[in-house]
């Protein structure tokens, strides 16, 4: 029994079993990052609050909207392949990849702006966390976009169907994890003060 069918029976989450082990490991890594930031901030409140004011909250919020919308498009892609509509699935995936690319472009502008301002990992503790956490997440967005692109090409070539679409669900589950951790990261780093 493939995992698509198993999911339909309400047993396993969508996608390959291995991706869920990977997702839980990634959540753990991000969780350690988040708590390290939160407790470091508790000891340097003024520094963190002052440094946070220099971040572009609008860019952070737009990036959140882009990731959420990308995740929504992936859900629609999975729904399309469950209806045996492979071409529609690939188009939803393409839309999700566009959201990922827009996120990466905005984040690159943010990184470049900070670089122009002479800010680096060694500037202070806040920026050490900000740059390392957001760059770590940035790399996950790149990986997620590459996975979605590979799945999109396979869907376009008719590799998935109503009966077998584990690959679409696996790529989608990974992408949702990337979205989920950003939903925590955004208020933690950009908003809470």
């Amino acid at each position: 029994m493939n995992s698509s069918v198993q999911h339909a029976n309400g047993r396993y989450p969508p996608g390959d079993f291995a991706i869920w082990i990977f997702i839980y490991a990634e959540l753990l890594a991000f969780g350690i990052f988040f708590l390290s930031y939160a407790f470091a901030r508790a000891n340097n409140v003024e520094l963190f609050n002052e440094s946070q004011l220099l971040l572009n909250r609008t860019a952070g919020a737009i990036n959140t909207l882009l990731l959420i919308t990308g995740s929504y498009f992936v859900v629609r892609a999975v729904a399309a392949i469950r209806d045996d509509k492979a071409q529609l699935c690939s188009r939803w995936l393409m839309a999700a990849i566009m959201m990922a690319c827009a996120f990466l472009a905005i984040k690159l502008v943010e990184f470049y702006t900070k670089y122009q301002e002479g800010i680096s990992l060694s500037t202070n503790t806040f920026y050490m966390f900000y740059l390392s956490m957001t760059f770590f997440h940035f790399m996950h967005v790149i990986l997620g976009a590459v996975i979605l692109a590979a799945v999109m090409l396979k869907a376009r070539n008719g590799a998935y169907s109503r009966e077998e679409h584990t690959g679409v669900e696996t790529g989608g589950s990974y992408w949702h994890m990337v979205d989920l951790v950003w939903i925590i990261l955004f208020p933690l780093v950009y908003i809470i003060r």
Partner: peptide, 9 residues
């Protein structure tokens, strides 16, 4: 609703 965990075990 996105990851589909509501319908999983």
């Amino acid at each position: 609703y996105f990851m589909g965990l509501k319908r999983a075990r």
